[in-house]
Design a protein around this nucleic acid. Sequence first.
DNA 1: TCCATATTTCGACGATATATGAAATCTGGA
DNA 2: TCCAGATTTCATATATCGTCGAAATATGGA
Lengths: 121, 121
Amino acid sequence: MEISSAVTSLAALAHAGRLTVFRMLVQAGPEGLAAGVIAQRLSVPPSSLSANLNLLSNAGLIVSRREGRSIVYTARYDEMARLLGYLLDDCCDGSPEICRPLAERLSQAVHCFDSSNSASS
Amino acid sequence: MEISSAVTSLAALAHAGRLTVFRMLVQAGPEGLAAGVIAQRLSVPPSSLSANLNLLSNAGLIVSRREGRSIVYTARYDEMARLLGYLLDDCCDGSPEICRPLAERLSQAVHCFDSSNSASS
DNA sequence: TCCATATTTCGACGATATATGAAATCTGGA
DNA sequence: TCCAGATTTCATATATCGTCGAAATATGGA
């Protein structure tokens, strides 16, 4: 991943409204949420939300699809993986004991770490 | 983690210069790097670097200690873990097959995932 | 075709972030 | 005490971001 796209993604997330939206979409899964639903849940003007959804979309963190009259947004898990991977890539450089707690915190957050490791056995 | 501190940290990282510095410090490990060394490596004016180090420091992502005439900066791995954990916390909500690739990307980046999992066997 | 619904685009204002030279601060040593 | 080295603070100019009403666009159905 290029540093410029990492910066773009981080900037997109560095905003309370957008971060909230993004986490909502991450939670929502592949089905996603319509723009109107998000605007209602967050009590935010449609035009403001649209601008922020656009920013997240341009950063590659979410995608949209039309579904009837609504436009449904979905989180891009692959891009999220790339971004977090980029932040972590140079970690643990020769010091496993330092990033051990980090790894534990991550596996706590991503529950399928356990299953992805035990399921392969 | 509060959303406001997540936003502060993300904003601190959403800047090419600061992101580069942060990754340098993550690489450098607990020994850290003196401000002057960083400024020289990156060919950036000391005052600019100082402002950016200050931002990262206020966000809690790095810490400084005086060592002779130099001020040495170090990455805070614990805070990095908290931030990334916050971004991931709501992931995988009932859909392990979705975040599986994400988990694999992360374990690729953080090499001690393997050791932390295989060492316990 | 015409209307109601769902979202986006446009425009303009205020607020915030960035960069950097010059001066100030702090440290170690003679 | 005085000096040189290392870094920060200050002040200022510049550029970018965020918000939201009003108008424009796209869709589905009668």
